[in-house]
Simulated scan of single mutants.
Amino acid sequence: MRAPHTVQNLREVVDFRVLPEQRLFSADGYEILAGWTTDIYFIKTREILRAMGLAGTEVVAEVFASKRGVLAGVPEVKNLLAGTGVEVWALPEGEWFGEKEVVLRIHGPYDRFGIYETALLGILASSSGWATAARQCKEAAGNKQVICFGARHVHPAVAPVMERAAVVGGADGASCILGAKLAGQEPVGTLPHAVMLIVGDTLEVALAYQRTMPAGTPVIVLVDTFKDEAEEAMRVAQALGKDLAAIRLDTPSERGGVTPALVREVRARLDQAGYKHVEIVVSGGLTPERIQLLNQAGADAFGVGSYISGASPIDMTMDLKEVNGKPIAKRGRIPGITPNPRLQRIL
């Protein structure tokens, strides 16, 4: 793969023009690969090293994490660095890493990859933060499903990145179409309240869902729009019978949200009426703590949004540890390559 053309100097930066009124504000793939999302001091570094004849200096750089987490974003970093000619090692995606553990190592001429430090740190930091939050939710859910519903809480440019990272972290699925596809899955989701409000009756929507969706599509019906959730669940179950796969509870915070007591009541009423096959999907402001309580109450699946999408990035730092084969480091860090047998060659 041929290395992309990247920003060469400060003159190119000055000449670079954007028209905010004619574009979305997110960087596209070309802009990231070209270096337009980098911090300006990396362009200054490039100019200085080239002026001194040192741009091709052989270095080893290491990336380490500020705290424990689940690693995500490795394939994207690989794609970012492909074609630069550098050698790269990384921890396997989806594995836990420890505080200060080296998660990525790069060996090659500095000018080949230095311009990408900003981007690759951002990729790993954000993706690992989302993956870690998803892992916490999955651990709380045990063997029950966790679906990421977080796309609406972040900028659309990063929504697919976030939902893919959630799957890497342990989520069983994602609702964002592109995010699910990037994770090698098909998107998962039910219906919004909007269709219920437009039609005006939950049961009518449920019957239309059954008629309209492709064969084999699980019929999962939202039951908190108009009536008492338990009443609506029974009404839909009686009409659809064995064709009803699940009901979804998404009671808003204005009415107390989905509580363990509500889940227990709905579960009991469905069971008593012979609808033990109907599962209960819950969503709305879920956290690992709430998932654990609702899991114990009888919920079967969990749609998690803001807990995953709002997870803080896990700070990543890149340090040069060798220059021309000699151990080196800034004050406070130990010179030389940090041993980590868990790293695997990816480029």
Rank of each mutant, 00 (worst) to 15 (best):
M1H: 09
M1F: 06
L191Y: 11
R264Y: 03
A55Q: 11
Y110H: 12
A55W: 14
T251R: 15
A297W: 02
E289D: 13
D28N: 15
A151P: 04
V74E: 07
R342W: 09
V304R: 00
R11K: 15
C148E: 02
V77N: 02
R112N: 06
V146W: 00
L10W: 12
G73F: 04
T338K: 12
A159S: 05
Y116H: 01
D201A: 07
G274H: 10
E186T: 12
G184P: 14
S175V: 14
L182A: 14
A174C: 13
G150A: 02
P214W: 07
D15C: 04
L320T: 04
L49Q: 09
E254I: 12
S128I: 01
C176I: 03
A90W: 14
N9K: 01
V168W: 00
V60R: 00
Q238I: 01
G285W: 11
G142F: 02
P75N: 14
T190S: 15
L191N: 11
P288N: 12
A34S: 13
P92S: 01
C176Y: 13
E62H: 06
E232P: 08
L347M: 03
L124W: 06
A125S: 15
L178T: 13
A3N: 03
A297D: 08
A125T: 08
H5K: 01
T6Q: 13
A34L: 03
S283G: 14
G303I: 08
F113K: 00
K67N: 13
L294P: 00
R105G: 01
A311I: 04
G170S: 09
T6I: 10
E87T: 06
R264I: 00
Y209W: 14
A133E: 11
I247C: 04
M213Y: 06
E12K: 07
R269E: 05
I106V: 15
T202N: 10
G83P: 10
V74H: 14
I308L: 08
G122L: 05
F97M: 07
K242E: 08
E322P: 07
R46I: 09
A297V: 07
L120V: 07
Q145V: 01
G108H: 01
L270S: 10
